[in-house]
Amino acid sequence: MPQNLFVYSEKKPKSFSMSVLTLVSTKNGQPTKGGLEAASYGVALSKQLNSEAVAVVSGDLQDGSSLGDTGIGRILKFPSPLTDSGQWAKLAEHAAKLVGATAVVTSHDHFGKAIAPRVAVRLGAGMVSGVTQLPQENAVEKNVFSGKASAQVEVTAPIAVYSVTPNAFGVRSEGGTAQIETIEVEVGQAKEHITSFEPASADGQVPLPEAELVVSAGRGLKGPENWGIVEELARALGATTACSRPVSDIGWRPHHEHVGQTGITIRPNLYIAAGISGAIQHLAGVNQSKTIVVINTDPEAPFFKAADYGIVGDAFEVLPKLTAAVKALD
């Protein structure tokens, strides 16, 4: 295939001369939640810049209606599914040039972390990762020092690349519909080959980085055999389970549940911590949660200082009571 060959459907070009391009990841034919959050951010940014909101997807997308609902008017779709970060970056670069993008937006998750920096290099753009709000007065806010501070970062290049922190901006409904156009570009050979996928949680929990409700426990639970009361509360709430680092280090819980400075950083609406002392390295991964509940036998536990609601008590008694109270909700 010749280089730089674009093929589109016969749709009329729009009147905007500039645009905000969102790179949207898909799974099983649908945009991911991170993709929809990024699209919502891209739409809001395009309004701020008075430009067009465009999304680019690779061939896996089957239904563009949820993307259209975020206010994306135009979807550029590459015919075949891409998973290679280098190929995706070439697609994104061509799409950005095609629509005259002054900003490129994506999700700050495993998709965006592999692709967005590559796109920034290809476009000579300035990149800010993990943004939490729209830019204001030439600067955009992001969290730094593992959530212990924030920074206002200015992009000094003509094009900006932003990756949006999961669960910070949310999915917004604008009730629109999107037109899908085919875009063909030469993306070269794939170098990264995915040979297998193992689902982490058999019980259908939402993956931790995306979870809105999280129930977490630490060494205070005393042994892996006691996790039933944690899982029951999580199940009653529809929450995902997490744990402190020592708990995963000694093998009571799987590694992918470890949150904190050296584990996963999360930002759920609700974080319930039982039997966790609240060490600074643990807080670094969870202190951006909207509401924090702490259950600890020790009234002096440092975690209470970071909590919105606290119960001084024994997790073995309090957790089952909470489960019962949640089940009693309508």
Binding site: A120, G124, A125, G126, M127, V128, A139, V144, G147, K148, A149, S150, A151, Q152, V153, E154, V155, T156, A157, N287
Partner: peptide
């Protein structure tokens, strides 16, 4: 291509 203007504590 980027510059931190200022930091803030939460």
């Amino acid at each position: 291509q980027t510059r931190v203007q200022r930091f803030a504590l939460p």
